[in-house]
């Protein structure tokens, strides 16, 4: 049985994503937009968790930094959404560089705790620095246009905005894909599998880890900006532990070390959240049960279903590794 060529699969997925919102109402289109945004966020975290073997519990840091930069840019500077995206990506990259410089020097549970600490720091900052962040009230953001200036194609209505996010998602995902399939990306897997050997054959381990950390943070900030432009609102919730944990769950449920798995994980988690939170007050409890089921029966996540037939890349180890760190919390 011959597998179809890769471009055919990409074409099919692109076609599905292009027509998907057409039969949906505005709210569902918004949900689909949110799935793409969180899918990108989870995919960026996957570079760390799945490929490099660094279990981060603070990815909301970069999501939040990107979001606040985009919000402040929109309120103070320009209504152009792509300019805000760029500023947010640069801002998140800078913060990822600074925090990553410290974080990559640790490993395992210390790495996990340090990333969590950064996220909590930023959360406190977002709550207390009210003149800039709006504190616990958050900030409302004006409407966005595609281009700066007066003639700037207003990104109005959920459907128009969906296609904007889809384009941004395609760009972000493409870059992440290029990253992990490049020699650099293979080196990251090498780091995950045997760091001592990589060091002994001459790789700059810290440099590679820091680069991966920065890439993940930058795309995380990119996703954060998209989310704020989608919601047109930001509050410290965007930097909260809830987001960090939820994204890690998306990665693990979807299947770490695959990029597309975490996107599927994002879809799963958000659909579960939306279906359950309108019906049950304690929807997190049910999400937890589903999560346990996934980890037990599908240790490679949803992506594991697809990969079963193929020679498996050694992802199970990294999944359990990430999970193991968490258990020791």
């Amino acid at each position: 049985m011959r597998r179809p060529p890769p471009w055919a699969r990409v074409a099919v997925i692109a076609a599905v994503l292009l027509v998907a919102p057409l039969p949906l109402n505005d709210f569902r289109t918004g949900l689909l937009t949110e799935i793409l945004i969180f899918g990108l966020l989870a995919a960026s975290l996957d570079v760390l968790v799945g490929y490099t073997g660094l279990p981060s519990l603070g990815h909301a840091t970069y999501f939040g930094v990107g979001g606040y930069v985009a919000a402040l840019a929109a309120r103070g500077m320009t209504d152009s959404a792509p300019v805000g995206l760029l500023a947010a990506t640069v801002g998140a990259l800078a913060v990822a560089g600074a925090t990553g410089w410290l974080a990559v020097r640790t490993r395992g549970v210390y790495f996990l705790m340090l990333t969590l600490a950064f996220a909590q720091l930023l959360f406190s900052l977002a709550v207390t620095w009210a003149p800039v962040t709006g504190g616990a009230n958050g900030l409302s953001v004006p409407r966005f246009a595609l281009l700066p200036g007066d003639r700037g194609l207003l990104l109005d209505g959920p459907l128009v905005f969906y296609y904007y996010v889809l384009a941004a998602f395609a760009l972000g995902y493409f870059l992440l894909h290029r990253l992990v399939t490049s020699p650099f990306g293979r080196s990251l897997v090498g780091l995950r599998e045997n760091e001592a050997r990589m060091r002994s054959i001459g790789y700059s381990v810290l440099g590679y880890k820091l680069a991966a950390f920065c890439a993940a943070g930058a795309v995380g900030g990119f996703a954060g900006a998209l989310f704020v432009q989608h919601q047109r609102f930001i509050s410290p919730t965007n930097v909260s532990f809830e987001i960090s944990a939820l994204v890690l769950i998306m990665v693990i449920m979807g299947g770490s070390g695959t990029l597309y798995g975490p996107v599927a994980g994002a879809a799963l988690v958000l659909l579960i959240r939306d279906e359950l939170s309108s019906r049950f007050q304690h929807w997190e409890l049910l999400l937890g049960l589903v999560f346990i089921g996934f980890v037990y029966f599908l240790p490679r996540g949803a992506a594991g279903l697809l990969r079963r037939a193929r020679p498996a890349a050694a992802t199970a180890g990294s999944i359990a590794g990430a999970g193991g760190q968490e258990a020791s919390l």
Partner: peptide
Amino acid sequence: QRATTIGAAAAVPGLLAAC
């Protein structure tokens, strides 16, 4: 591996629910 993963699974939603 299984055991730690399941442990994590139990821990995460707990944390999540609390937080």
